[in-house]
């Protein structure tokens, strides 16, 4: 019964998100088929009214909004995300091609920031108020506060442009056939280093701070003193008790931050022209491509939502004190 209740809650959340997802993009003022102006120097071909009418009829945009909403839900139920208005392709195809890149970036950033954040946070807590702690803390503060796009631009300029260590943009070297799988993989990682680093650095501070604070708060705990009394070495106490205690908030933090992380990915992908969903969604918003915006929103939110579901399951596994549903 309780499980069912939980499930309905998630279904309701999904429904709410679906509705927001449908109406928010359509509330944007502007017409997706109207092209009066372009960016400086950009060529545009303005559509005539007749042409716009033909397109709108073709995509069902001439229907009343509530009917579009119903047919949108019906289409979704049949697993159809619709047809992109601007990119002339089915949204499902576009999303499928872009998704792996974003997942790759985000996972890379999570992995990198968590591992490094935990290590540095523990180190910092261990040497609390010593030189190392202060230096680390200062660095973390500095980098975690600078917006990801600025870090990204900075990386782009220093490491890619001036030093030439990394490629300027993109996810792969185009037009170089006859490469082995290893070479291709190396190429992909080579391209991903800067975006992942830029994305991680902004997350790193949060992770570091979290671990550091938990560790610090754990030191005076009674069981730690007991452990120390038992003669365990400080390192082992730290690793065993500290990390175990940090695991819970850390996992929640990771899952919690997914939404923001995706937000960061939007900016970073734009800086590095990285072909993920983030780059796509900003383009889609720019041209008011409703079905595409909705499709990308939906995929991202569903992914993050299922991650949340997982985090709750994990939470319960890891912390038996929190009981299921207080009522």
């Amino acid at each position: 019964m309780k499980k069912l209740g939980r499930l309905t809650e998630y279904v309701i959340t999904v429904l709410i998100i679906l509705s927001i997802n449908f109406f928010l993009p359509r509330m944007m003022p502007g017409d997706p088929f109207l092209f009066l102006s372009g960016d400086q120097g950009e060529q545009i071909s303005a559509y005539s009214d007749e042409q716009i009418r033909q397109y709108k009829a073709c995509y069902g945009l001439d229907q009343p909004i509530f009917r579009s909403y119903l047919s949108y839900l019906a289409d979704l139920f049949r697993g159809r995300l619709g047809q992109s208005l601007y990119f002339n392709e089915s949204v499902g195809h576009i999303v499928l091609r872009r998704l792996p890149w974003t997942v790759f970036l985000v996972c890379g950033a999570i992995l990198f920031s968590t591992v490094l954040g935990t290590a540095l946070g523990s180190l910092s807590a261990f040497y609390r108020n010593r030189l190392l702690d202060n230096v680390l803390y200062g660095f973390m503060m500095f980098f975690s506060e600078i917006p990801a796009f600025l870090i990204g631009l900075f990386f782009l300029f220093v490491f890619a442009a001036s030093l030439g260590l990394f490629p300027l943009s993109g996810a792969l070297t185009s037009f170089s056939p006859d490469r082995s799988v290893v070479q291709v993989l190396k190429d992909i990682i080579h391209h991903a280093v800067l975006p992942v680093a830029a994305l991680s650095l902004t997350r790193l501070g949060g992770m570091y701070l979290l671990v550091r604070n938990i560790m610090i708060s754990i030191i005076p705990k009674a069981y730690m003193r007991t452990a120390r009394a038992k003669g365990l070495s400080r390192y082992r106490i730290f690793i065993r008790h500290g990390l175990r205690n940090a695991l819970l908030p850390l996992t929640t933090r990771i899952f919690m931050s997914l939404g923001t992380l995706v937000g960061g990915a939007v900016l970073v992908e734009n800086v590095f022209a990285y072909p993920g969903l983030g780059l796509m969604i900003s383009q889609a918003v720019m041209v008011h491509d409703y079905p595409l915006i909705q499709g990308i929103f939906l995929v991202i939110t569903l992914l993050v939502l299922s991650a949340n579901l997982m985090s709750e399951v994990l939470y319960r596994v890891l912390d038996p004190r929190v009981k299921d549903g207080e009522g």
Partner: peptide, 30 residues
């Protein structure tokens, strides 16, 4: 706790799950 908690948690979840930047772009446009 109880349904109030779950209600707010759903809202919070919903807010957190929405990719904030695109929504902000749309809201700012709106």
């Amino acid at each position: 706790g109880g349904w109030m908690d779950r209600f707010f948690m759903r809202i919070i979840d919903g807010m957190m799950v929405l990719p904030d930047l695109p929504v902000m772009i749309v809201l700012a446009a709106f």
